[in-house]
Design a protein around this nucleic acid. Structure first.
Lengths: 203, 203
DNA sequence: CCTACCGATCGGTAGG
DNA sequence: CCTACCGATCGGTAGG
């Protein structure tokens, strides 16, 4: 008896759990409830293990967050980085980067939410690595903006850093309300936001 | 002996603590560390009480968050609402609202951070009240955008809701990096962001 | 507003 | 990967 007790543990016959599975469930839970509110027992339940068994796969809870955040930022960095250094005019690069952002968001919504919002829960050592990645990420946009200023494409910018952070900010704000099965596609949203950023509401 | 023990409690001679003081310290702590990570002992330490004594002033931890979030949103609502229904053209109203937002942010930075980001920790009943306030807040921007579309001032908007959420998003993103004693004033940032939103980077 | 305390839950571990 | 368990900390309360 007590063969199954509430779905906890008791994984008779099922294949061994992989680290990737644990990370996937953790992403979902962190995204929905935030890192400090998610217990190791929530994760082990979702994966079908007993709490202590998680430690056969990971070092500790924070290690799990670190992996998730790092991969999440790298996804965006690898998607946007190449575009930002391409040969076309800055305005075109910005539009392309904004579209690409929305496309990546579409396929990695939960991980993006965790990666961009919850790195603050990391302890100093781990956080330092993430801060460096975030710097690189900001550079993607900073390069386009400064190129556009130099080429005369963006003549109205008085404070480049505000333009950079504003552009990143308007993109990041979408992860609060975007849904892959909402009324608008990520491409439509990306284009609309690019229009606003480049031409403004008054056109 | 044990007259003071680490500053906890032992408030010999000091005036009684007020609810407002508790809320102020809680805002600072929630803003810096997030609601679930802040313990009642952190708050009682900051205020100079013993943990249990807090319950002479508040019903429970969540009640404290609820008060803070509600007041924080109302601050913005009362500041922006009147502007949004004024008589001037939509473009001018948008600029004015964006400036006002930055000005309110300047004086209520920590509370804004808590109010706009941490209402998600409220239980369903409390959260429902906040969601209603957030709806009103979104309406402030939705009205300006739809007026501007109707008047022909904002001819390029294909998806009004994206324009509304994008505008709110670019403003809210500033609370992640704005500092009252940074290089740029809130007025400078507000103007720069209004220029981008209205005219775009390409002007 | 303090004293003294409580049940629940947390992340994590030893030993197999 | 489970069994069995641990110390620490959490929000909150009774009684004054």
């Amino acid at each position: 008896m007590a063969v199954q007790r509430k779905g906890r543990g008791a994984r008779a016959g099922s294949k061994p759990v992989s680290l990737e599975q644990i990370e996937r469930e953790a992403v979902t839970l962190f995204s929905a409830k935030t890192y400090p509110v998610v217990g190791m027992r929530d994760i082990s339940d979702a994966v079908g293990l007993l709490p202590g068994s998680l430690y056969a796969h990971i070092a500790n809870k924070e290690d799990l967050l670190q992996r998730i955040v790092e991969r999440g930022i790298r996804n965006h960095l690898e998607g946007l980085g190449p575009i930002s250094v391409s040969d076309i005019p800055a305005a075109g690069r910005l539009r392309s980067v904004m579209r690409a952002y929305m496309s990546i968001l579409d396929t990695t919504l939960e991980q993006t939410r965790v990666s961009f919002n919850q790195w603050t829960y990391l302890s100093p050592d781990n956080r330092a690595q993430i801060v460096e990645l975030r710097r690189e990420y900001e550079q993607v946009f900073a390069r386009i903006v400064s190129d556009g200023i130099a080429s005369g494409e963006f003549p109205s910018i008085r404070h480049p850093r505000v333009a950079v952070l504003g552009t990143i900010g308007i993109l990041n704000s979408t992860m609060r309300w975007y849904s892959p099965d909402g009324e608008l596609t990520s491409a439509e949203i990306g284009d609309e936001l690019a229009d606003i950023a480049l031409n403004g509401l008054q056109r």
